[in-house]
Lab assay of single mutants.
Amino acid sequence: QTTIQVRVPYRVVGLVVGPKGATIKRIQQRTHTYIVTPGRDKEPVFAVTGMPENVDRAREEIEAHITL
């Protein structure tokens, strides 16, 4: 297991999390990772935990939302 920090712009935190957390839950299920969402007043950084290859996939999925 490994944990990485995925930093995103403030404006996309809501996009990545999705309505009621649906998007981030879907990313967690698809990539078999555990993702901690940043709090409102915190740095916009997601903490992604899982097997290294799964963590990389989750990071790619999160980063895909940044380019939307």
Rank of each mutant, 00 (worst) to 15 (best):
Q1G: 04
I24R: 04
R26A: 15
A22D: 11
V45D: 00
P38M: 10
P19H: 15
H32Q: 13
V8M: 05
F46I: 00
K20M: 11
T2V: 15
E53D: 13
E53K: 09
V55P: 00
M51D: 09
E53R: 10
I27Q: 01
T33E: 05
T67V: 11
E63W: 14
Q29P: 04
P38R: 06
V17Y: 09
Q28K: 03
T37W: 13
T31F: 03
R57G: 05
I27C: 02
R11V: 09
V48L: 02
G18K: 04
R11E: 15
T49Q: 07
V13C: 00
P9C: 00
R59P: 06
K25R: 13
H65D: 12
G50M: 05
V17W: 03
V16C: 07
E63L: 14
K42E: 15
R40L: 12
R30I: 10
E61S: 04
P44A: 11
I4D: 10
T49F: 05
T67A: 15
N54R: 02
P9E: 05
P19T: 10
K20S: 09
E43D: 11
D41L: 05
E60Q: 14
T3S: 07
V55W: 10
Y10H: 15
V36N: 12
A47L: 12
I66E: 08
V6L: 05
Q5V: 05
R26F: 00
P44R: 03
I66K: 08
Q28H: 10
H32T: 10
I66D: 09
A58H: 00
Y34S: 14
Y34Q: 15
E43V: 10
A22S: 12
P38Y: 01
A22V: 05
V36S: 11
V55R: 05
V36G: 03
H65L: 15
V48I: 14
A58N: 00
V17P: 07
T2G: 08
A58L: 03
Q29T: 09
D41G: 14
G39L: 05
I66R: 08
T33Y: 02
G18P: 01
G18D: 01
V17G: 05
R7K: 10
Q1H: 13
T33N: 00
K42Q: 15
P52M: 00
I27F: 02
N54D: 14
I66Y: 10
R57F: 03
F46M: 09
Q1L: 13
Y34V: 15
T3I: 06
P9S: 06
T23W: 05
V17N: 08
T31E: 05
G21D: 00
G50P: 10
E61N: 02
P19A: 10
Q5M: 13
Q29N: 01
A64H: 13
V55M: 00
T37L: 04
Q1A: 13
I4R: 01
V12P: 00
R26T: 07
R57Y: 08
L15D: 03
Q29Y: 02
I27P: 05
H32K: 14
E61G: 03
K42C: 14
G14R: 09
V8R: 00
D41A: 07
V8A: 03
R40D: 09
R40M: 12
M51L: 14
E63V: 03
Q1N: 13
I62H: 03
I24D: 05
A22E: 12
V13T: 08
V45Y: 10
P19D: 10
E43N: 09
L68W: 14
D41W: 08
T23S: 09
R57M: 12
I24Y: 03
V55N: 00
E43H: 05
Y10Q: 15
E53M: 11
P52Y: 06
V55L: 03
K25P: 01
Q28S: 10
R26Q: 13
H32Y: 02
Y10R: 15
M51C: 12
T2Y: 11
I62G: 02
E60F: 04
H32I: 04
R26H: 07
I4A: 06
A64S: 12
V17T: 03
I4H: 02
M51W: 03
T3Y: 04
V12L: 15
G14M: 10
L15G: 07
E61K: 06
G18H: 00
L15N: 10
T37A: 13
M51H: 13
T2I: 15
T33I: 07
I24F: 01
P44H: 00
R59K: 13
T23K: 06
V12N: 08
G18W: 03
R57C: 07
D41Y: 09
K42H: 12
R30E: 11
V17D: 09
R57A: 10
P19M: 11
P9A: 06
L15F: 12
P52A: 06
T2W: 10
I62S: 03
D41R: 05
T31H: 04
A58I: 00
V13E: 01
Q28V: 00
P38T: 07
Q29D: 05
R40I: 08
D56C: 12
T67N: 15
R59E: 00
H65C: 14
D56P: 03
R30C: 05
A64K: 13
V6S: 09
F46R: 01
V55D: 01
E61V: 01
R30D: 13
V13R: 10
A58M: 03
I66V: 13
G39N: 12
R7I: 05
H32V: 06
V13I: 14
K20E: 09
E60W: 06
R11Y: 11
T31I: 06
I27K: 00
R11S: 15
T3R: 05
L15C: 11
L68C: 15
V13D: 04
R40K: 13
A58S: 01
G39E: 13
I35K: 04
L68H: 13
D56T: 12
A22W: 06
G39F: 06
T31V: 06
P38F: 02
R7F: 10
G50N: 05
D56K: 15
R7L: 01
G14A: 12
G50W: 05
G21M: 09
I24W: 00
G21K: 02
T33L: 08
A64T: 09
T49P: 00
F46W: 07
V8T: 02
E61Q: 09
G39Q: 14
K20P: 01
K42S: 14
Q1M: 14
M51R: 12
D56S: 13
V45G: 05
I27N: 01
T3F: 04
G18T: 01
R26D: 13
G50S: 12
Y10V: 07
Q29I: 03
E63Q: 12
F46N: 06
E53A: 11
V17S: 03
V17C: 11
K20D: 10
V17A: 07
D56E: 15
T67H: 07
P19S: 09
L68Q: 15
H32G: 13
R30P: 01
Y34E: 14
R30A: 11
K25N: 10
T31W: 02
G39T: 12
A22Y: 01
T23Y: 05
L15I: 09
P38Q: 04
V48T: 02
L15Y: 12
Q5N: 11
P9F: 00
V45P: 03
Y34T: 15
V16E: 02
A64Q: 14
E43A: 12
L68R: 14
I35M: 06
I62N: 08
